[in-house]
Design a protein around this nucleic acid. Structure first.
Lengths: 227, 227
DNA sequence: ACCTGAACACCGTTCAAGT
DNA sequence: ACCTGAACACCGTTCAAGT
């Protein structure tokens, strides 16, 4: 069993005033160290060495806190990938940035698809929309194109997050996929499932995620051209 | 004289043995009536008029129970939409079947994207895979095509579920989308967001979901042809 | 074998009381 | 104003005890 305890803050500057930003930062640390289930108000107050009620002085409730933590990570990812001259490359970079953020912080993937009205989702919509516009997608097709890409990215995020949750790093992920493939193959005699399982066993899901983005880009270009 | 024997309970099914199927059926009823948060072991035992521990005689834990409830609904949806001669039409029907199932049972949408290793997700993979095969997607492209489509459907499922959770029926959903659009527009001055919000206000999300399926089908066909 | 329901080890959130 | 921590109203799960 791995030790799941969160290290107590290096130096108890209890005299610092608590703030929303400090609480969100602490939430990210607790989530990274112990996962979604590990973020309890009690764990958070222990990490900040304060009382439970103090949290509620700066944050409405746990849901809002989680949304803020997700937005923190997604904000970094979208900011890091926005400055490519070619909009197609910018979209691939944006998608990969989100993928890698979820690989590093699996709780982000799960939380992103739980609530469409959260800041982080607005942020993704905005980035996707601006790149699709630069790509030349006409206004009439924008809503369909944007939601197709956003839904794909969020769907993939949630699915891959389950793998990343159990296994971070390349080797671990390969092992996870092998197990998953075995489970599928055992669970279902259908030849298509068997085939998919066999391929799952030795593919790179980061590459597969990108292949999906490629399919979308090809589709949106063709649909926009004939629409 | 009237018969004075008071029936202990009109619900004589109490004497029926409890079974896994009966428990799953009851879980679906509780979920439909009170939503995800309403499915507690206590509520379920009340609905079945039994003790808490009895549940654990037939079901491993709450997570497995939820997965079984989701599979029940998704099973009906995939069965209803599998017999079209044209694989393209069959895929659209399959996607719409899942969309409508989530509209009627919003908790399905949220739960589907939470765990890739659940029976309902296998089921969707299987249906999608078999139709893509009939569509002529070569084996080498199958994993990418399948995961693109499945991830899109699951991502959309989760996003639309949030709308359906608050508003079932056409009029309510329109009202929800109008509120969401207003919230976006207020939250963000970016012209692209403003544009998206304006369109969100008067579109049909069922139609938009289908437009996304169309984009992916077009992309898959084009990529498979040149691959 | 199947079921019961009290007990256990947790939750998020509130609020009178302190500084 | 900001913080504390006991108290409240819940959870899912277990298990000795009953039939």
């Amino acid at each position: 069993m791995t030790d799941m305890t969160v290290p107590v803050s290096r130096n108890t500057r209890r005299s610092d005033a608590l703030s929303r930003d400090r609480i969100v930062e602490a939430a990210v640390e607790v989530l990274d160290a112990t996962g979604e289930a590990g973020l309890t108000v009690r764990a958070l107050t222990a990490h900040l060495s304060t009382g439970r009620g103090a949290i509620y002085h700066h944050v409405v409730n746990k849901e809002e806190l989680l949304a803020a933590a997700v937005d923190e990570i997604v904000g970094r990812a979208t900011a890091a990938a926005g400055d490519d001259d070619d909009p197609g490359r910018a979209i691939r970079a944006l998608a990969l940035g989100i993928f890698d953020a979820i690989d590093a912080h699996p709780w982000v993937g799960t939380q992103l698809s739980r609530e469409p009205r959260q800041p982080a989702v607005f942020r993704i919509w905005r980035s996707v929309g601006s790149q699709l516009q630069r790509l030349g997608v006409p206004a009439a097709a924008m809503a369909a194109a944007g939601s197709a890409l956003v839904n794909y990215v969020l769907g993939a995020a949630a699915q891959y997050a389950a793998g990343a949750r159990r296994a971070t790093g390349d080797a671990d992920r390969k092992a996870y996929l092998a197990t998953l493939a075995a489970q599928w193959a055992q669970h279902d005699p259908d030849p298509i499932v068997q085939e998919a399982a066999a391929r799952l066993d030795d593919h790179d899901d980061r590459e597969q995620f990108l292949a999906g983005v490629e399919i979308f880009l090809t589709g949106i270009t063709a649909v926009a051209a004939r629409g």
